[in-house]
Nucleic acid binder design. Structure first.
Lengths: 109, 109
DNA sequence: ATTATTAATCGTAATATTGCAATGAACAAA
DNA sequence: TTTGTTCATTGCAATATTACGATTAATAAT
């Protein structure tokens, strides 16, 4: 019905899915890569950089912020965003544990 | 409009998003973890293991198969699935490059 | 105070995703 | 051949996501 049945999965599985979903749109990937590239707050030029309409970018930023992956501070008339390094590290550990599962033998298929 | 504007992003960004989307549902996370845990083909018991209806599981498997993350072989009356280790490794490199971007200084926010 | 600038929010349309009942296809067992 | 088993596909309903125009909120500049 369009609703994920989260109650039948572990917290860890749901958490992985939530973070993965955040990366499941190229605009959010691009935003995060840009924030990393600048290695500083980005104030204002995200709309020009990414190429989607301002409300759309704002919506993507909101999602990333709600997940804790980025932080935003009001700076006069503009808002500055940057990576939340602590939370990024936590997220990375979770995702790495999932991605790095060992493949210890040849599979049969 | 519900459509991602993929044409305005790089191939790499789109590819990351596509893989991430695959992990963006706890059922697919659970399926993959189970395949890793077994470390072999799983033939048949996925529906019991995950707890969703058979057509739903089948659909999730199809998505993972289309992405190349798992392989499936018909084995008599049942179908056996396992991780496609080569493609998993490729995917992991792509995702790791994204997740491991360096945070070289304190951010300002 | 008025105007300009910037970003968030609201409202809405279009499309995608999730889930499952019903059905179909393939094969094994009898 | 008939029956049972297993998985894929179809069709559909419910919900989520994506995108953006219009508007609002907040502040800066004049």
């Amino acid at each position: 019905m369009g609703v994920s049945k989260t109650e039948m999965f572990t917290d860890s599985q749901n958490e992985i899915a939530v973070f993965a979903k955040a990366f499941g749109h190229p605009a959010r990937v691009a935003i995060l890569q840009y924030l990393f590239k600048l290695n500083a707050c980005v104030c204002g030029d995200l709309v020009n950089e990414i190429g989607l309409a301002q409300p759309t970018i704002s919506q993507h930023l909101k999602e990333l912020k709600q997940l804790g992956l980025i932080k935003g501070n009001v700076e006069g008339t503009s808002v500055c965003y940057c990576i939340d390094t602590n939370n990024w590290t936590k997220m990375k550990k979770l995702m790495s544990a999932f991605l790095d599962q060992d493949i210890t033998k040849e599979n049969c298929c």
